[in-house]
Design a protein around this nucleic acid. Structure first.
Length: 269
DNA sequence: TTAAGTGTTGCTCT
DNA sequence: AAGAGCAACACTTA
């Protein structure tokens, strides 16, 4: 679930609730989520540092932790981040917990334990090493670059949008929404769009993600906070197209189930 | 009760 | 180059 909008909302939640707090201790309940560092090392390096700036690249969140560098978090399929006020009970699936000197806390939750917690010196270097493409909402990411990426491969649009090496931040759910708003069939080939389609896809990619973030459409209030013109609330059996009322179709694209409107997103384009 | 399905990613094989 | 299949995991749904 955590795609770019979800992770961006985690980042803002972290900023407003934890920025400036000093870490008293870090507790790792599930060492398997750590990468490149063991639980004792992580705890030792985090202790005494202060939460600074935060950054996001695609679905990865980075938090500055003083001279320890940056704490990097990936949320896998259903991870999340939760601020704990003094006295709050420890939530379920709390895999890494940070306790601050002032009694507050921060919990990295991950029920399915698919995700990653790292400590890095340089988020940009980490993103490069992970082969992440440009963040989908990065102001420095330009349309011409996106269009080159479309033209440079013969892949299906849905697979390309979900490829973190092509564009970072989009997953199964938001790729469906972006293609629906752009009125493009998920299996259209990326190198066969005309100029107007390429531009439309770019504009809808930005608009959909920006709208979701602005609406606060995170994990919990996803469907209720999105505008009524959105496909996402209809991503289910017996879903109806919010534009034309046709039955929403489901099919496998690159091994993932995608939902689309067969009438608004014709195969031929 | 049981089994298939699921928002992610990385690996192998073709 | 790119897609299929699978594995990691725990929970929900049929």
């Amino acid at each position: 679930m955590p795609e770019l909008p979800d992770v961006e909302l985690f980042r803002r939640h972290l900023d407003t609730s934890c920025h400036g707090r000093t870490i008293l201790s870090a507790t790792v309940a599930d060492p398997k989520l750590l990468s490149g560092i063991d639980a004792a090392q992580l705890a030792r390096r985090l202790a005494g540092t202060r939460i600074g700036a935060s950054r996001r690249h695609g679905k990865h969140l980075f938090v500055a932790v003083g001279d320890a560098g940056w704490l990097g978090l990936h949320f896998g399929m259903n991870g999340s981040l939760l601020h704990l006020a003094p006295g709050d009970a420890d939530p379920s699936y709390d895999r890494v917990r940070i306790d601050f000197a002032d009694g507050h806390g921060l919990a990295y939750l991950n029920p399915r334990r698919i995700g990653e917690v790292v400590l890095v010196d340089d988020p940009d270097a980490f993103a490069a090493a992970e082969r992440l493409g440009p963040d989908a909402l990065d102001p420095k990411f330009e349309r011409a670059d996106f269009e080159r990426r479309l033209a440079g491969t013969r892949r299906e649009l849905k697979a390309l949008l979900m490829d973190q090496a092509a564009v970072a931040g989009i997953g199964n759910i938001y790729s469906d929404e972006i293609l629906f708003q752009a009125r493009l069939h998920p299996s259209r080939r990326s190198d066969r769009l005309d100029a107007a389609e390429r531009r439309h896809l770019w504009e809808q990619m930005r608009a959909v993600l920006e709208t979701a973030v602005a609406a606060g459409a995170g994990a919990e209030r996803l469907t209720e906070r999105l505008p009524s013109r959105c496909l996402i609330p209809q991503r289910k059996r017996d879903g109806r197209c919010p534009r034309c009322g046709a039955a929403i179709a489901a099919a496998k694209f690159g091994g993932r189930t995608g939902y689309f409107c067969p009438r608004c997103q014709p195969q031929g384009g």
